[in-house]
Design a binder for these strands. Structure first.
Length: 460
DNA sequence: GTCAATGATTTACG
DNA sequence: CGTAAATCATTGAC
């Protein structure tokens, strides 16, 4: 509150001025003509200065028994909120204090002195006025505001908040039901934060206006004794508001932090991992095992899979990444799964070929028009069927001839590798199965007979 | 509570 | 940028 000190120094200067007995020659003459010792002026000034030290309650409770000079250069508009406590009539204040005030105000030198002070103050305040700077909007607080608005903490009740949450939930992926559950949970917590934020904000604002009122009252009261311009009061109010807004910023900051924590807790997919539903896993596995020689779905295939599984493309990518590495690491472990999906694929293949022309040779697997990605790489399916055959898993009798034919075909071609070298394969795959060659051959822990690969005759 | 499964993230590489 | 590989973090069965 450097303004207060500035006012004080102003007054101190005045005090010195008065004590030096300079000032308006008229008033001095008046004083002398009234036969009052000049010492009086010093006393009065002393008392006036003492008033700046009075407490807020003292100022508010003070009662002015007589019509005092109008606020220095200001309006007397009672709606401005000044003198809120004026009706208290000094109840509870020490008598000697009230006496002092009263005496001061009744002092016959007061009006004259007051006008002198006003004049001097007017000159000094001119220099102050230029100093007053307009504080530009704080970028920090603007950022916080923006974030709070974006998160839906501030702003309209059901606006950006739910939208942001929905977007975040969508980004996090997961099944619709799951995300909606999390979404509502998130919304509830966010609403909690929002409520706390608003109630705190309200408290701050209330406290701010209360305090501002107090200070304004105090200054108004004091302005009857010492010169205080409305401009100064305004500046004081601005200072108070600045102080309070810095507190508000802290509130906003901690609210932002709370929202961030909430977000990471609720919307961070890693923390809130959800297993894909059975159907999605099935679709993905079907694709994986039917493209075992080249399990690298193209962008379009990924999109298609994502749509089918109600997950995001990146989740599809993640899934395939995980699947590839885990399959490669322990092929044996996935044998059963591979067989299972091989059967599925084979059944589908059988159904399709049953409906299509029988002219298709099994040895040319890529003939015909496959679906989006279903049957384009049947070579892998053959591969799995081979081992499946050897393990005596049930195969529909109607399929058996086909399987046999395929089986023969794989042997004739010296393995499935050649079968998968179709031009339909996207990026990687001219060298089929090269994706699992790079590292360890069949894992140590895996039972003998990884699908296809080196053990081309395990089926026998 | 343990542990395998699994989805996501990180890091490194071409 | 897409991928491999390692790792993290959670889920769900036991």
């Amino acid at each position: 509150m450097d303004d207060q000190t500035r006012m004080m120094t102003g007054l101190t200067g005045l005090g010195g001025l008065a004590q030096a007995d300079v000032g308006d020659p008229d008033s001095v003459r008046k004083q002398q003509s009234l036969g009052q010792p000049q010492q009086d002026i010093g006393d009065i000034l002393q008392q006036i200065m003492a008033i700046t030290d009075e407490s807020l309650d003292e100022a508010q409770a003070r009662c002015w028994p007589e019509e005092s000079p109008a606020h220095w250069g200001g309006s007397d508009d009672p709606t401005e909120g000044g003198r809120a406590g004026g009706g208290m009539a000094g109840g509870g204040l020490p008598l000697n204090f009230q006496h002092r005030k009263h005496a001061l105000n009744c002092h016959r030198m007061k009006p004259a002195l007051f006008s002198v002070l006003c004049e001097i103050k007017e000159k000094t305040v001119l220099s102050i006025r230029g100093v007053q700077e307009e504080d530009p909007p704080d970028p920090q607080i603007m950022r916080l505001d923006n974030m709070l608005l974006a998160e839906g903490v501030s702003g309209p009740e059901k606006g950006g908040g739910s939208a942001a949450a929905a977007a975040a939930a969508a980004a996090a992926g997961g099944s619709p039901t799951d995300s909606s559950i999390e979404h509502s949970d998130y919304r509830a917590k966010l609403a909690q934060i929002r409520q706390i934020y608003h109630s705190e904000l309200e408290k701050y604002e209330q406290a701010c206006s209360e305090f501002t009122n107090h200070v304004m009252n105090l200054l108004r009261e004091q302005s009857r004794t010492r010169p205080i311009s409305p401009k100064e009061i305004e500046r004081m109010v601005a200072i108070i508001h600045r102080k309070f807004s810095s507190i508000q910023m802290q509130l906003k900051q901690s609210t932002c932090e709370a929202v961030m924590i909430l977000r990471s807790r609720f919307l961070d997919a890693r923390r809130k991992r959800r297993n894909f539903n059975k159907q999605a896993t099935e679709v993905l596995n079907e694709y994986f095992y039917s493209h075992l020689s080249n399990p690298y779905p193209s962008e379009e295939a990924k999109e298609e899979l994502a749509k089918k599984c109600a997950i995001t493309v990146s989740q599809v990518s993640n899934w395939f990444g995980n699947k590839r590495i885990r399959y490669k690491k322990n092929i044996g472990k996935f044998q059963e799964e591979a067989n299972l999906y091989a059967v599925k694929t084979a059944v589908d293949a059988a159904n399709v070929s049953a409906h299509a022309s029988q002219a298709n040779s099994p040895a040319t697997p890529n003939s015909g028009s496959p679906g989006p990605y279903s049957l384009s790489h049947t070579g892998d399916a053959y591969l799995n069927l081979r081992s499946l055959n050897g393990e005596g898993l049930g195969i529909a009798p109607s399929l058996q001839p086909q399987v046999d034919t395929l089986h023969r075909a794989t042997h004739l071609t010296g393995g499935y590798e050649e079968l998968s070298g179709s031009g339909l394969y996207t990026p990687h795959c001219l060298d089929a199965n090269s994706w699992q060659d790079t590292t360890n051959s069949p894992s140590v822990t895996s039972p003998p007979g990884p699908p296809g690969s080196v053990h081309s005759d395990t089926s026998n």
